[in-house]
Each structure stands twice: as structure tokens, then as C-alpha cells.
Write a protein that binds this DNA or RNA. Sequence first.
DNA 1: TTAGTATATGAGCAGTTGTGCAGATGATAC
DNA 2: GTATCATCTGCACAACTGCTCATATACTAA
Lengths: 116, 116
Amino acid sequence: MSTDLCQCRIVHEQQVEKARRAALPPAELDRLSQFFKAFADPTRLKILQALHLEEMCVCDLAAFLGVSESAVSHQLRLLRQMALVTNRREGPVLYYRLADAHVSQLILLALDHIRE
Amino acid sequence: MSTDLCQCRIVHEQQVEKARRAALPPAELDRLSQFFKAFADPTRLKILQALHLEEMCVCDLAAFLGVSESAVSHQLRLLRQMALVTNRREGPVLYYRLADAHVSQLILLALDHIRE
DNA sequence: TTAGTATATGAGCAGTTGTGCAGATGATAC
DNA sequence: GTATCATCTGCACAACTGCTCATATACTAA
């Protein structure tokens, strides 16, 4: 039988306190996890990697990814809300591009890790 | 009426081809998104940030996070499988710590971004 | 205006994820 | 051996995600 609540007598109070003091504010933590979530899906990752090369329209991205334009549009909205991409209108066509250099940096750093 | 399939005549073939050539292999793409997924949850992010300071046992982490030890253990398994944390046994207690420096780097880079 | 094209959006649904519970495992002390 | 403590694991379930479909919006041309 176990309640799964912490009944340990060996909780290291100082370490827990230290962690508490260094912890990021909850709002920032949520934004941070939301930010990483943007990279945590193969489709979005492909979009970001493709846009690293040059701007592309929704249609191009759909063809590249092999999914519906609707699906791409949904993902682009999410990336827009996270300020990871911006767009530029040329007539009826919207061209998307990366919003800043952090994106590529982050992907490269992560690649370093998984390639060991 | 729309089928949601790409019927555009304005697909830029060269750009799509260019993106295709530069695309990461599917296996690597999956590993990469899995890797980012590890950071895409507030609980795991808090764990990683806490372990950045110093090693902690499951009990400590549960107290710090305010969740059950079971939940922490589940998340630690995931982080272990992603090679983001390792542990060290001291009697019945397991002390967890970050596996390498990439983790902190990545979090700092992401913080740079969301703080603009 | 109307028709046609490119993109956006809302609803609904299958698949995934994070958590708690109950029980199992591993280590230590007796 | 038994008892106890720290941690792990399988299961169930609510919450979330990413997709498709249908529809709406925005722009262009006639």
C-alpha cells in the first residue's frame, strides 16, 4: 500500500529550498515550455528548417510536406503566435519566413546533442 | 467548395526542390522532435532547471514540484531515455543530474528568445 | 458586381500525453 | 527470512494535439 505522496524522511530541505529560489516564475516557465513545444513536432520542425533556407508560401510548404494546406495553415498560425515566423503578402500569396536567428541556432544546438 | 488538396498553380518548384534536398533524414527529424518534446512540458522543464544547480533525489524533486513521486519517476524515465539525465545510486536513494551541458545551453538560448 | 485563387478558421475526431493509483522491484536493517 | 524505505512500472482516464473537412475571408481580375 502506498499513497504516492512524499513520505520520505530523507528530503534534503536545503536543496529543495535552493531549487525553489532559483526557479523561474511560473509565467515564464509556461512561455518557455510553449516555445519548445513549437519545435516538438516533425511537421513544424520541417517547416522551420525549410524556412531557414528561404521564404515560402503556404502552397509550397504543403507540397514540400505532403500534407493539406489547411494543416500547414494551422501550424503556421501557431508558429506566428509564438513569434517564430512572420509573413509578407504579395497579391493573394503569403510568403512566410523565420522571425529571427534564434530558431536556426536552437535547431543546430539540438542537432549537436542528438548526434553526440 | 474546396478539397483542401493543393491545387495551386503557383507552387514554386525550385524552392520546394531546394527544401527537399536540404531536408534532414526522417529518422533524424523524429529524434530531433522527440528531443524538443522533452523540454516542452513545464514539469520536465522545472526538473531540468533544478538539476542544473545540483543533483537531487526523486523525493526532493517531488517536494519541489508539488507532484507525486510517481509522476516524477515517469518523467525521469523519459528524460533518461532521451539521455538528458543520469543517476547515481547511494544506498536506496537515486540521485539524478543533468547528462551534459547542452541542456542548460538550450534553455538559456530559449530564454533569450522569449525575453526578446 | 461575379468568379476564381490563396489562405484562414472552427468543429469534430483519432491518437497522444501527463498524472495518480495500486502494486512490483531493489536495497538496507534486523 | 521479514519489515521498511525509495523508486519504478502497468493501467486507466482526463486533457491536449494535429489532422481533415467544411466554410469563411482576403485579394485579383473581368
